[in-house]
Write a protein that binds this DNA or RNA. Structure first.
Lengths: 247, 247
DNA sequence: ACCCCACCGTGCGGTAGCGCACATAGCGGA
DNA sequence: TCCGCTATGTGCGCTACCGCACGGTGGGGT
């Protein structure tokens, strides 16, 4: 890697001990990824594992008729390409970049080598994968039981958390593709949120004016996913602490 | 374990080499599990990993208002309790047994010991987990885009595969809870299937008369999940073969 | 043999979201 | 400055599903 990682770093990389960093960092490459880039195509073997720093990536499933639905969102708390260490080598999901930015990437071979040491990275990646599983499961339930208005709030909150900004560059059309609903449905829902002063938007830019308002209008799904993700990250920290104090 | 495992064995256990079996089998315990047993409660730490042999287990998420939806089905192709090796120690899903039968169970400690060898079981469990992820993701999309009629077919097919029988002991009410829809919706859909001669049912027993008919009425989701599961199991077999021929 | 309860059938009004069609309006480029 | 494309607003009929209510029925327990 050319330079020391910048502030908007990746949480998994950050959780590594100095020793593990020493092994891994030299093989990381900070790669620019732009809006719309497809990091993973269904059935294709990935060549790198990506550690996003300041980008947000959607994992979505596409149906035969072209309809789609997002199953999870990844930001700098995770990685794109879990099939590389889960052993399947490819997935059925497409990974597409929303807000452009940067990601560290690690070649499949280097990843395998480090993962097979069964050390820190192994634990961090598997625990993150469990967090991803939780997100997918909750998405399934949310798709079943909650209305578009609530789901839009959930999606905005997940995005806010991953982008660390209050403005999203995102059209209604794109959000509709992510949620798997009609564009008009998103326009309606967004219009209601705007009328209530919770968000403001114009031509592809959405500004969140009141995060508490969003949270109040959201279904429990956002909270459930966040709570479990926090719990799992807490376990990461506890383990790191334990290792440092020489347990 | 008291006796040699019976024919309806678990595929993951079956895929182990003689050597790995030698280490693991002595610690397995064939446990009867009955209809309705909850193997895993949200937030609770599991004490055993379960390898179903002739039972079918639903993984479901329950919402605050009591509404629920199944996110995946597990049979003798997999295990219940992936959080034990994924590192989270608990999950947000509930695992509930449908058709009673038997499962081998392995204590959390023994599992950890074997998993940490980073050998065969490690690979098998992670690859199965990827298959589970695929199922959850597809469920999310199916919940979004497909109607109850199609989802009922999907569910019946998934159940058939896991039970290895053409008769299911299952009420409309229970299926409705799994799919996250109204009981009446299931009654309607099942009535239509019966009228078309694809299934027959009475008071809690459903008999599948035409599997091809079910497959034709089903959305692509069943096929997609099965295809990916088969691919992943094929990789298991290839690895086992490779190991035997001393690669 | 009976009874009762769990299971299934059916109807009704209400609503969320769909598919389609078309009107309006920013914003970037020539 | 104007043009054209893309993004958003809105309306309409339709369907699937919901929540509720109640009627019928089969099968197991006593």
């Amino acid at each position: 890697m050319a330079s020391e990682p910048r502030p908007p770093h990746n949480h998994i990389l950050r959780s590594l001990s100095a020793e593990a960093r020493g092994r891994i960092y030299p093989h990381l490459r900070l790669t620019p990824v732009s809006h719309g880039t497809v990091l993973c195509e269904p059935g294709h073997r990935m060549r790198h594992l990506y550690f996003p720093t300041d980008t947000m990536v959607s994992l979505l499933h596409v149906l035969e008729n072209g309809a789609s639905a997002e199953v999870a969102v990844v930001g700098n708390e995770g990685v794109v390409g879990v099939s590389l260490f889960m052993g399947g080598e490819s997935t059925t999901t497409r990974a597409i970049v929303h807000n452009g930015g940067h990601a560290f990437r690690l070649s499949a071979a280097r990843l395998k080598r480090e993962f097979d040491r069964h050390g820190e990275l192994h634990g961090l990646l598997l625990r993150y994968t469990q967090s991803l599983i939780t997100q997918m499961a909750q998405t399934a339930v949310c798709n079943r039981h909650h209305c578009v208005d609530q789901q839009l709030c959930r999606w905005l909150l997940l995005s806010l958390d991953r982008l660390g900004a209050t403005e999203l560059v995102m059209t209604h059309e794109l959000i509709a593709n992510m949620l798997g609903v009609r564009r008009e449905g998103v326009t309606d829902a967004a219009g209601r949120l705007q009328k209530r002063g919770i968000i403001r938007y114009r031509r592809g830019r959405i500004t969140v004016l009141s995060r508490p308002g969003l949270e109040a209008s959201c279904c429990e799904c956002y909270r459930a996913v966040k709570k479990e993700a926090d719990r799992l990250r807490g376990m990461d920290r506890a383990r790191a602490q334990h290792a440092r104090t020489g347990g």
